[in-house]
Computed example of a mutant assay.
Amino acid sequence: MDHDRYASAYICSILRSVHTIAVVGASPNQSRPSHGVMSFLLGKGYRVIPVNPGHAGKRILGQRVVAHLADIAEPVDMVEVFRASSRFSAVVDEALALQPRPRVIWGEFGVRDDAAAEKAEAAGVRVVMDRSPVTEYPRLVRRAS
């Protein structure tokens, strides 16, 4: 897949089909992008599970934080990644170890690792990198409604 450009239909189908999203790197700090994206996703009706070992057991935006993806007790449709690109591969490995696997792994703005994306795609997981649902949702989903 060409991760420099995504077809609008590809992104739209992801945002319309996922329901439960794990946010890796979630932060309780309101000035952090992950906090704003979590708030946005919750406001659009998604089930959001914050993942951050430094805040495990606490709550972010009313949602209980887990330490690792493996600690999530329900299937997740999408893993939203707020980690440095150098950590993306490790998150992909954690996501691929889940049963069932998520259908999508999404790297936020600035998060890109083509080799990790290729590994996920080889396992049947769709990948988006260097994009944000906060910008894509209003551009694609609202217009398509």
Rank of each mutant, 00 (worst) to 15 (best):
V51Q: 03
R142L: 15
A123N: 06
V141G: 06
L61A: 06
P138M: 12
V81L: 10
R87M: 14
H3N: 07
L15P: 03
S31Q: 14
H19W: 02
A123R: 06
I14P: 01
A56Y: 04
L96D: 01
S34V: 06
L61I: 03
E94W: 10
G43Q: 13
V23P: 00
R87S: 12
A26W: 03
V79Y: 07
L69G: 09
H55T: 06
R83F: 09
Y6A: 00
R87H: 14
E80P: 02
A123C: 10
P33W: 03
R59I: 05
A9E: 15
G45K: 07
S39K: 15
R112S: 14
D130C: 12
P102Q: 08
A84N: 12
M78L: 15
M78D: 04
A73F: 02
L140M: 09
E80M: 11
S31A: 13
V127T: 10
S31N: 11
L96Q: 06
A95M: 08
A116R: 10
R83P: 06
R64N: 07
G110Y: 05
L98R: 12
A117Y: 03
N52V: 08
F40G: 08
G36F: 06
R101E: 04
V111N: 07
V81K: 07
W106H: 04
I11L: 11
A70C: 11
G124N: 09
I49N: 00
G62S: 12
G43E: 13
G45E: 07
V66R: 02
P53K: 12
D2L: 00
A22R: 02
V37E: 06
D71W: 11
G45A: 07
D113R: 12
V125R: 02
K119I: 12
F82R: 00
G57L: 08
D130W: 03
E80A: 04
A90C: 04
A122K: 14
I60V: 13
R139E: 11
V66L: 06
G43W: 13
R32S: 10
V91F: 08
D130H: 09
K58Y: 06
A117G: 10
V65A: 06
G124P: 07
D113W: 10
V79E: 09
T20K: 09
P138W: 13
V48T: 00
L61T: 03
G62H: 11
A115D: 15
S39I: 05
M1L: 01
